[in-house]
């Protein structure tokens, strides 16, 4: 597996992955986030501690690993897919905030096939609501 990307590269690649799926008309994008505990020099001495619940209160914040893939490990005839897209990046604790802000932007821009907000329906309902409120007022007066 390729080395972890910088967050800039990750977002560029993720954006193109989403766009590719969109243009193809079908497909899936899998995004995973979890705590990074592998290959991390800072975390390893903490694990040695005898406390089985060591991970509940680590002395220092830990980085996160974000992965994105198109989920295509195999083609339909069950052969390994060499074209599989699989990218990852490491988010340092200090960067979590900025990372998720950009992450939200990229996802909002990329996930275009989701149902859009239906504004016309909303207007209709508001119109319906108005007379109901009026009638209830009249009954109170009576």
């Amino acid at each position: 597996m390729a080395a972890h990307l910088s967050s800039d590269d990750f977002f560029t690649r993720l954006g193109s992955l989403l766009e590719k799926t969109q243009q193809k008309g079908h497909g899936a994008v899998y995004l995973t986030q979890k705590r990074l505990t592998f290959d991390n020099d800072a975390a390893s001495p903490e694990m040695v501690a005898d406390d089985p619940l060591w991970d509940l209160h680590p002395p220092n914040p830990l980085p996160l690993i974000m992965r994105a893939t198109d989920g295509k490990s195999q083609s339909r005839d069950r052969t390994k897919n060499t074209e599989k897209i699989k990218i990852s990046t490491i988010v340092q604790p200090d960067d979590v905030e900025t990372f998720y802000t950009r992450y939200a932007d990229v996802c909002k821009a990329g996930m275009q096939s989701l149902k859009k907000r239906d504004r016309s329906k909303r207007k209709k309902d508001k119109k319906k609501k108005a007379p109901v409120a009026g009638s209830s007022g009249e009954t109170k007066k009576a």
């Binding site: 986030q33 979890k34 705590r35 209160h57 680590p58 220092n60 914040p61 830990l62 980085p63 996160l64 988010v91 604790p93 979590v96 905030e97 990372f99 998720y100 802000t101 992450y103 939200a104 996802c107 909002k108």
Partner: peptide, 13 residues
């Protein structure tokens, strides 16, 4: 995704 960010903070401790 905002929620994912909040959960990410749990992960990052």
């Amino acid at each position: 995704i905002n929620g994912l960010g909040r959960l990410g903070r749990h992960m990052a401790a």
